[in-house]
Design a protein around this nucleic acid. Structure first.
Lengths: 185, 185
DNA sequence: TGTTTCATGTAACATTCGTTTCATGAGCGA
DNA sequence: TCGCTCATGAAACGAATGTTACATGAAACA
């Protein structure tokens, strides 16, 4: 759309990546990015419209960035998909996007009417992508669920403690646990 | 303390278990539990004092309830600790407490000054308890981190989808993965 | 040049927020 | 019965919320 609009999305996104969405209000945001609440409403219709536009951009950036590093998941073993997932996730440039997504997902648990729409189209757990890298199996779905949970759980731990070493070791341990096993054991 | 105070804590807790803490305001809460914002401030000093009192009660109830079912973790294999953890967590009577704790923990990521204090004394990841059930090992800490992440990740998935069957299967799969392995492999 | 569209500033709107002030009983010990 | 503490109600406080009305200036187009 408008050029000004995209600039406002970018700046608002930067602000939300830092401050989150739970306590977001228009005037402090507008002040921080050098505009006014009046303008934000003018360009996005409402606060809700602004957040929607920003979260769309979040989703687009994540997909664009991650698609670049992953390639076709059906051609890779699950272990390398997990490693690629994790390395990308905790990368300095990416982790703040995951943090924002995480926040919205958890807020949607108690208040799906307000925060659910922001997640539209986001399989915020990465179930499908992981499932695609798994060979057919009786327990494929449970296995994909477990892998996604490991990523999500370790990400939460990383976001809370910023202990990249320990969480990364935990993921490596998980990969080793998977290595010596057939799925249907 | 006061009897009235404990009654207000209990009712406020029920309300917060259902509605969460992110968008909590005094007047709707007070209206729902049959009192007034005036009274809540009178008994707890401030909104912050109320939330602190409620979260203290959350922590106390969780510890009391969970201690009853777990016993001494050093005397049990990690697998049974994980099973006990999970069964307790997704139990109808308990899961809402975990949900509230989860919300506060995630809000504290972006706003530790506001939400961090509510978590005081809460090892909201269950790292220590799990670590206590593990035998000494070079990778004990990474292993405990992984186990805690599996619980946290599966809990998030369960809270978002309410698919108890699939998440429970994923945990069973994880337990089987651990079973055939020495820790230092 | 005149007109129209777009972007923006100023200021206000009604509402809600956490909190406070003031008043009023209810119960209870002296 | 007199005071005193505790609990409560009614109402207001200033601040902040999302949103809107109105005016203005610049740019684009006729």
């Amino acid at each position: 759309m408008s050029e000004r609009r995209e600039e406002l999305i970018e700046k608002s996104l930067d602000y939300m990546l830092e401050h989150g969405v739970a306590g977001l209000t228009l005037r402090p945001l507008a002040g921080a990015i050098g505009t006014s609440a009046r303008l934000l409403v003018y360009h996005f219709g409402s606060k809700d419209g602004l957040i929607t536009a920003v979260m769309d951009e979040v989703r687009a950036r994540i997909q664009r960035s991650f698609a670049g590093v992953l390639g076709d998941p059906t051609k890779k073993p699950v272990k390398s998909v997990m490693q690629a997932f994790w390395a990308w996730t905790i990368h300095r440039a990416n982790v703040k996007y995951m943090r924002l997504l995480f926040e919205v997902q958890v807020l949607a648990i108690h208040n799906p009417a307000m925060y659910g729409p922001y997640l539209e189209g986001t399989s915020s757990s990465w179930l499908e992508l992981i499932e695609a890298s798994l060979p057919p199996s009786r327990e494929k779905r449970a296995f994909a669920t477990l892998c996604a949970a490991v990523i999500d759980g370790l990400l939460l731990e990383y976001l809370s403690t910023r202990d990249g070493r320990r969480t990364t070791r935990a993921l490596e341990l998980f990969n080793r646990l998977m290595a010596g096993r057939t799925l249907d054991a």
